[in-house]
Amino acid sequence: MTALKANEVARYLQRPDLDEGIFLVYGPDTGLVRETAQKLIRFYAGDDPQSASIVTLEASDVDADPSILAVEAKTLSLFGGRRIVRVRGAGKSLVMTLSELRDDPAGAVIVLEAGNLTPRDALRALVEAARLGRALPCYADSDETLAALVRETLATAGITADPDVIAILRDILGNDREVTRRELEKLTLYAADSKTLTREDVLTLCADNAALVIDSILDAAGTGHAERLETALNRALGSAVDPQRLLIMAMSHFSNLRRWRGEVDAGKSPRDVLNALRPKPHFSRLASLERQLRLWTDPALAAGCERLHQASEDSRRRSALADAVLRRALLAVCMMAAAN
């Protein structure tokens, strides 16, 4: 039985141990499933992919004609190259057909692409139990694998990035490998001439991540940076982020600051307070949050919370003016921070 672990797949792809067989690529990250299948196909197609015979089937094709998979696998290539059969959307309906190929794939490489499969799934069980079968799980990138992918991509393009770029990209990307690749391609294209990538570049080009934009707004207001606040607000409102949602997030942020400030007033250091939080803030925000805890006093935070609470009520009563109410309230809070 050969069942690879997710962290073993990348290394396995560099040197697969079978000359023929059934490869099941599965998991919730559809982009990574597709990328892994393509890497397998490129490996087995070799340096001369034109000599390989590559056939792509949909699972529905096999459902309509169960014999087609076996026929394609056993058909000799006209040019004498390796026979590669790729099946997209594979599921347990293929089990019967694959049963006759599991021990004798007739020299073919069969690459199956599937979604997330449980250990008891019939297709996964068949491939994992086959002598000539390998199952390759594909799960969403971890912080470590995503950081490695970003570094590799930027290094290959000869791009130097600001120290916090990788941390920001970890917050934005990682749910789908295909999306991650597209975003990294966009960033490398943008920096193709300058060969540098800044935090602001990433925020500008990848501003569809609402949580990241909101963090930028809150940190700018909390540290008294009016220009950064204006830039972040324009980006968020231009991306149709709800101003009332922003006010709610701002109230929550400054309420948390007041609670944390209470611990500082009781004798703890700002960094110790932040390190004890669960979930812990991302390290890319720690310096900003620590600065906010040092800038603000409890009375000032109480006044700031009251200002935001009033703005939230005003925005609900006069929804047409919600953008203006939001801007005025956050600028007022920002000025309070700058005066501390």
Results as ranks from 00 to 15, higher is better:
307 R>E: 08
155 A>S: 15
174 G>D: 12
7 N>C: 03
160 T>I: 10
148 A>R: 02
188 T>L: 05
88 R>M: 04
118 T>R: 08
160 T>K: 15
212 L>I: 12
274 L>C: 01
118 T>W: 03
243 P>E: 14
137 P>F: 10
188 T>Q: 05
84 I>P: 07
323 D>H: 13
294 R>W: 11
180 T>M: 08
205 L>W: 01
270 P>A: 02
298 D>G: 07
221 A>N: 02
13 L>V: 12
321 L>R: 10
55 V>E: 00
339 A>N: 04
218 L>Q: 09
125 A>I: 04
23 F>Q: 12
270 P>Q: 07
182 R>W: 07
31 G>V: 09
155 A>N: 14
105 P>D: 09
290 E>Q: 11
81 G>E: 00
326 L>P: 04
62 V>Y: 04
249 M>Y: 03
317 R>S: 06
262 G>R: 04
16 P>A: 03
161 A>V: 01
193 D>V: 05
300 A>P: 00
130 A>W: 04
176 D>E: 15
25 V>P: 00
200 E>T: 13
188 T>E: 07
338 A>L: 08
302 A>Q: 10
29 D>C: 03
181 R>D: 14
236 A>D: 00
4 L>G: 04
32 L>E: 12
314 D>F: 13
246 L>Q: 10
71 V>N: 07
272 D>K: 12
268 K>N: 08
270 P>C: 05
325 V>A: 03
292 Q>C: 12
21 G>R: 00
176 D>K: 08
23 F>G: 01
237 L>N: 01
245 R>S: 12
256 N>L: 15
21 G>D: 05
162 D>Y: 04
163 P>T: 14
25 V>S: 01
65 D>E: 14
297 T>R: 09
71 V>Y: 04
312 S>I: 00
300 A>R: 14
226 A>D: 13
243 P>T: 05
187 L>V: 11
193 D>C: 06
220 A>F: 08
25 V>E: 07
234 N>A: 15
119 P>F: 12
80 G>T: 08
46 G>M: 01
209 N>Q: 12
116 N>T: 02
116 N>R: 13
212 L>D: 01
321 L>C: 11
102 R>K: 13
336 M>N: 06
100 E>G: 10
280 K>E: 14
68 I>N: 07
245 R>F: 15
156 T>D: 15
56 T>V: 13
68 I>K: 09
326 L>R: 02
289 L>T: 11
33 V>M: 02
325 V>Q: 09
53 S>G: 12
281 P>T: 15
273 V>D: 02
318 R>K: 05
194 S>H: 00
165 V>K: 00
236 A>P: 06
17 D>C: 12
102 R>D: 11
100 E>M: 11
323 D>L: 01
